[in-house]
Nucleic acid binder design. Sequence first.
DNA 1: AGGCCGATCCTCT
DNA 2: GAGGATCGGCCTA
Length: 249
Amino acid sequence: MRVKEMIARNTRLPGQLLARTLFEGTPERVAPRLLGKLLVRRVGERELLAGRIVEVEAYLGPHHETPDPAAHSHRGPTPRNQVLFGPAGHAYVYAIYGRYFCMNIACEPEGRAGCILVRALEPVMGMEQMARNRGLPALEFREGHNRAFPPLPLERRKDGAPDLRMLAGGPSRLCQALGITRAAHNGLDLLDARSALQVRDDGFCAGRVRVTARIGIRHAAELPLRFCLDGHGCMSGPRQMRGLVMVLG
DNA sequence: AGGCCGATCCTCT
DNA sequence: GAGGATCGGCCTA
């Protein structure tokens, strides 16, 4: 207990943990509520990497009334996707294309397998380490901008320096930036203060949320299950995408 | 046992 | 905008 408290204090994690009930709803209900939350990676006892969730996609479990053949859980439990059928709030990390990882958050009560794919983060803490993790050149910060997040460039920089959007904009880019792997992080409880990977709330209020079709899938490609902070510079995919705008209440 | 293919990213045109 | 890298998981035989 003492050790846990020391870790919690020494790392000074931003914000606070979320309630598990938030994740026990259906994925299309949970997804927009994750926008603006922080995904926090603890590295050892001191280092902290964090990004604000600006884009997510919902994937519907096999019990959902709407079939979702794009979901990994669509055909029922397998050794790979078993975390999705467990309790809400746990990380499902899988490998894709032989070289990358993607991270999901399990939703719904145990036995149901809806989930949220985290697709893009706005880097908040540890940007320099994120750039190193991504194999990008060192970031250069202007005077006074090394603490607060610098303004987002909306166009690629001409000098070849990394576009800050590219640090963690994209489901595999964000895993690379935070050092998330299947071996180390699949199954972790994101709502446990001792976990190396957590979702936390620092009070940020999501404004307008854009709802569009999901990206990069073949099946059920029309379902409006992608949610992003409208117009945010760090979202992945096409800049202008057809969709509805909702305001969270 | 073998084949297919993906919730991606990067490079090049 | 197109194509290649690269391999684990899942399906078929």
